[in-house]
């Protein structure tokens, strides 16, 4: 009897994974090219620069959201929650608002934006870390309690932000609103370069953790048995998630359900849970969703609606479907 060996099986799986990634990469490239070139009229050089910058912003945001969502799901051992749903991006908005509240818009506009950003990220790391410990460092973790906690946190953070925003003097508020309700059409070029560099560095740092994250996904006890330092890996991931969420939110504001959508679709699409596959797959899917969505919105419907509205609508429905499926199990 000829037996299937593990060497053969794993080689076949590896080939399939590579095919999936190649396919997604192709789709992402095609969407990006289409977005840049379709209906390019008038001063095409100028238009192309504008579009390229928009695409660059969407790629950076897509990668940041996708990577942070997959990693967050791994360390919290669930498939329904993401940093967005747990209110991490509302937290960033709150931090930003509080900075203006306490130091005035002058600080926001005159200080070195990179320094400002670094400060906000540090605040995010501290708060997100505390929030995580408070919510997840327990033995029994009921999904619904966590979802509820996430909704409450998110709402609390946004309400606090709008409260603080009301107390800010009107001039400062205008500046703040500019930074808060940014969209892909108005991304600052310097901020974009810094963000791209940050996302690249953090992603490479996480790539080194992929094998250990695969083990961590089995659960805490399995990870400990296999010699993975659970606490250290979780801490590193939390810092990375805080940085990535900050980058994405600083660039275009919260897109709550994008991460949930791409992380789960990537898992379904790839059929495996290994980070080597799921992380790049969800990043590519995020790029396709953002660039493709924007393309359809702008060119087909000639709409000026923010893409996040549509993504949150679709993602929200998906989220509810996931919750119902969990409830049935």
């Amino acid at each position: 009897m000829s037996r299937v060996t593990s060497a053969e099986t794993f080689a076949r799986v590896r080939r399939r994974e590579n095919r999936v990634l190649a396919l997604l990469a192709l789709a992402a490239v095609a969407t990006v090219v289409a977005f840049c070139l379709i209906a390019l009229r008038g001063n095409w050089e100028y238009a192309l620069t504008i579009r390229a910058r928009k695409v660059a912003a969407m790629v950076v945001v897509g990668c940041a959201v996708a990577v942070s969502s997959v990693l967050f799901q791994t360390v919290t051992n669930n498939r329904v929650l993401t940093p967005g749903i747990m209110g991490f991006d509302s937290l960033f908005v709150l931090v930003q608002t509080l900075v203006v509240y306490f130091f005035g818009a002058l600080a926001l506009s005159s200080a070195d934006p990179r320094l400002m950003f670094a400060g906000q990220v540090v605040a995010m790391v501290v708060f997100a870390g505390a929030l995580y410990r408070w919510l997840f460092d327990r033995r029994s973790r009921d999904l619904y309690v966590l979802v509820l906690a996430g909704v409450v946190c998110g709402t609390l953070f946004s309400s606090l932000s709008s409260l603080a925003a009301r107390l800010i003097n009107p001039n400062d508020f205008v500046v703040l609103q500019d930074t808060l309700f940014a969209n892909f059409n108005s991304v600052d070029r310097n901020l974009l370069a810094v963000s791209a560099a940050l996302v690249a560095v953090v992603s490479l740092w996480m790539v080194r953790l992929f094998p250990r994250l695969d083990v961590l996904a089995l659960g805490r006890e399995h990870a400990l048995n296999l010699g993975v330092d659970h606490r250290s890996v979780v801490n590193q991931v939390l810092v990375a998630v805080a940085v990535l969420v900050s980058v994405a939110t600083a660039l275009v504001g919260p897109i709550t359900f994008l991460g949930l959508l791409v992380a789960n679709l990537a898992r379904q699409f790839a059929g495996v849970s290994r980070h080597r596959v799921v992380v790049p797959a969800s990043a590519l899917l995020a790029v396709v969703a953002l660039v493709g969505g924007q393309l359809v919105l702008e060119r087909v419907f000639a709409l000026d609606t923010a893409l996040s509205v549509i993504i949150n609508f679709v993602g929200g429905i998906y989220f509810i479907a996931l919750l119902i499926r969990e409830a049935k199990r």
Partner: peptide, 20 residues
């Protein structure tokens, strides 16, 4: 008790034993 929340084949599980 051993629960894993992720999709995993028998072969993959056994192979994780070699991780250390």
């Amino acid at each position: 008790e051993n629960h894993t929340s992720i999709r995993l084949s028998v072969r993959e599980l056994v192979a994780f034993g070699r991780f250390p």
